[in-house]
Amino acid sequence: MGKITFYEDRAFQGRSYECTTDCPNLQPYFSRCNSIRVESGCWMIYERPNYQGHQYFLRRGEYPDYQQWMGLSDSIRSCCLIPP
């Protein structure tokens, strides 16, 4: 099982949303994503809903700024857990 936490502000500040399963639409939970903490598993995150747009592969670790995962913007709208 994986676990990823999205934060609206840099350095793990602001409103957060924790996810443990695939989520095709993160828009209801936060308006922007400036930092991420991957506590377990590997995740693919996407800039648009329904697994569309630019995608980024994240391993376990801390990403205090969206540029840390080579993001082009602070828009993350869907995510899925990559099976081991």
Score class of each variant (00 low, 15 high):
Y7S: 02
F12L: 06
D9L: 13
Y51T: 15
K3W: 07
A11D: 12
T20N: 04
Y46E: 00
M1W: 03
Q27R: 12
A11R: 08
C23I: 03
Q27E: 10
P49L: 14
N50C: 15
Q52W: 06
T20E: 12
D9M: 13
Q27C: 04
R15V: 11
L81I: 09
E18R: 07
N25G: 10
T20K: 06
L81R: 09
N25S: 13
E8M: 13
A11V: 07
N25L: 07
C23S: 14
S75Q: 14
G14N: 05
G14L: 02
G2I: 12
G14W: 02
G53W: 05
L26Y: 01
N50T: 11
D9S: 14
N25E: 11
S40F: 10
Y51A: 14
P84R: 12
L81Y: 05
C80R: 15
S35D: 00
F6D: 00
R10W: 08
L26F: 08
L81G: 14
F12K: 01
L81P: 08
G53R: 10
F12Q: 04
K3T: 10
C19L: 12
P49K: 07
N50F: 14
A11S: 11
S16Y: 14
G2R: 11
F6A: 00
R48V: 14
T20Y: 05
Q27D: 07
G53C: 03
E62W: 15
Q52P: 00
S35V: 00
Q52G: 14
R15K: 12
F30S: 05
I36M: 15
G2C: 11
T21E: 11
I4Q: 00
R15C: 13
I36S: 03
M44S: 15
I4A: 03
N25A: 09
T5W: 13
P24F: 01
Y66C: 03
Q27I: 07
S78P: 03
P49Q: 06
T21Q: 10
A11G: 11
C33G: 01
R10M: 08
C23D: 12
Y17L: 06
I45N: 02
K3P: 04
C23W: 06
Q52V: 12
E18I: 07
F6K: 00
K3I: 13
I36G: 05
T21I: 04
Y51M: 05
S35F: 01
S75H: 14
S75T: 11
D22Q: 04
W43R: 06
F6W: 02
F6N: 00
Y17A: 08
M1C: 05
F12C: 12
S35K: 00
Q27W: 04
L26P: 02
P49W: 07
T21W: 04
P28R: 02
A11E: 11
D22E: 13
Y7I: 02
E8K: 05
L81K: 07
G2M: 04
Y17C: 06
C19H: 08
P49C: 11
N50K: 12
L58S: 01
P49N: 09
G53T: 09
R48Y: 04
S75R: 08
S35N: 00
G41S: 02
Q52M: 12
D9T: 04
R48M: 07
Q52H: 12
Q52T: 07
D65A: 03
Y7P: 00
N50Q: 05
E8L: 05
L26T: 09
R48L: 12
Y7V: 01
G53M: 06
C19F: 14
Y17M: 14
Q13F: 04
N25T: 09
M1F: 14
G53I: 13
L26R: 01
G14A: 02
G53A: 11
M70T: 15
G2W: 04
I36A: 03
N25F: 02
S75K: 08
L26W: 07
T5L: 12
C42R: 01
S16E: 13
Q13L: 05
G53S: 14
Q27M: 13
Y46V: 02
D22C: 01
N50R: 09
H54Y: 07
C19Q: 05
R10E: 10
D22P: 03
M1D: 02
L81A: 12
G53E: 15
N25C: 13
G53D: 11
G14T: 02
C79R: 02
S31F: 02
V38C: 08
G2Y: 06
P24W: 07
Y51H: 15
D9P: 00
G61C: 02
A11I: 08
I4V: 09
G14P: 01
A11W: 12
Q27K: 13
E62P: 02
L26G: 07
I4T: 02
I82T: 02
C79Y: 01
D9K: 14
Y17H: 10
S16I: 11
R10D: 07
Y51K: 15
C23P: 01
E18A: 09
G2P: 03
C19P: 10
E8N: 14
D9W: 10
E8P: 01
R10H: 05
F6C: 02
L81N: 10
E18G: 07
I4G: 00
Q27V: 10
F57M: 13
C23G: 11
L26Q: 15
S35L: 00
I4L: 06
Y17F: 07
Y17G: 03
Y7M: 03
P24Q: 05
D22G: 08
Q52D: 08
Q27L: 14
Y17Q: 06
E39G: 01
Q13A: 08
F6E: 00
E18C: 10
I4S: 07
R48D: 11
S75A: 08
E8C: 08
F12H: 04
Y51S: 15
T21A: 09
Y17S: 09
C19M: 11
T20C: 13
I76F: 03
Y17R: 09
S35Q: 00
Q52E: 06
N25P: 00
G53L: 09
R10G: 14
L81V: 11
S35P: 00
S75W: 08
L81Q: 15
Y17N: 06
Q13I: 10
G2F: 03
Y7N: 01
N34D: 10
I76T: 00
Q27G: 11
M1Y: 06
Y17D: 02
R10T: 12
R10I: 06
D9G: 13
E8Q: 12
D22T: 02
P49R: 11
R48W: 06
L26D: 00
L26N: 06
Q52A: 06
C19Y: 10
G14E: 03
F12T: 03
M44L: 15
P49F: 09
K3S: 11
F12P: 01
R15Q: 14
C19S: 08
F6H: 00
F12M: 10
N50L: 12
G2D: 11
G14F: 01
N25V: 08
Q13N: 07
R15T: 15
Y7Q: 01
Q13S: 10
E8V: 05
E18V: 10
S75P: 09
S35C: 02
Y56F: 00
I4N: 00
G2K: 10
R48H: 10
V38S: 02
A11Y: 10
N25M: 12
E18L: 08
P24R: 09
F12N: 04
T5F: 06
Q52C: 05
P24L: 11
L26I: 13
D74V: 01
F6T: 00
M1R: 06
P24Y: 07
S75E: 05
T5K: 06
T21P: 15
F6R: 00
R15F: 04
G14D: 02
Y51Q: 14
G53V: 03
C42Y: 03
F6P: 00
Y29D: 04
P24A: 08
Y51D: 04
E8Y: 04
F12R: 03
N25R: 05
S35A: 06
Q27A: 14
C23M: 10
T20M: 10
N25Q: 06
E8T: 07
R48N: 13
G71D: 09
D9Y: 09
P24N: 06
P49M: 13
E8A: 11
Y51P: 00
E18T: 07
Q13G: 12
G14M: 03
G61D: 13
F6M: 06
F6L: 06
G61V: 09
Y56C: 02
S31Y: 03
L81D: 09
G61S: 05
P24H: 12
N50I: 08
I4W: 00
T5D: 01
M1I: 02
E18P: 06
Y56N: 13
N50M: 13
S16T: 07
Q52Y: 09
T20R: 11
N50G: 05
C19T: 06
C23V: 14
D22R: 06
T21N: 07
S31A: 07
G2S: 07
Q13Y: 10
T5V: 09
M1E: 05
S75F: 06
T20F: 13
Y17T: 06
T21Y: 07
A11F: 11
R10S: 14
L26C: 08
F12E: 04
Y66H: 04
G2Q: 10
E8H: 10
Y7T: 00
F6Q: 00
R15E: 13
T20V: 08
F30E: 03
S35Y: 01
S75G: 11
E8I: 04
D9R: 09
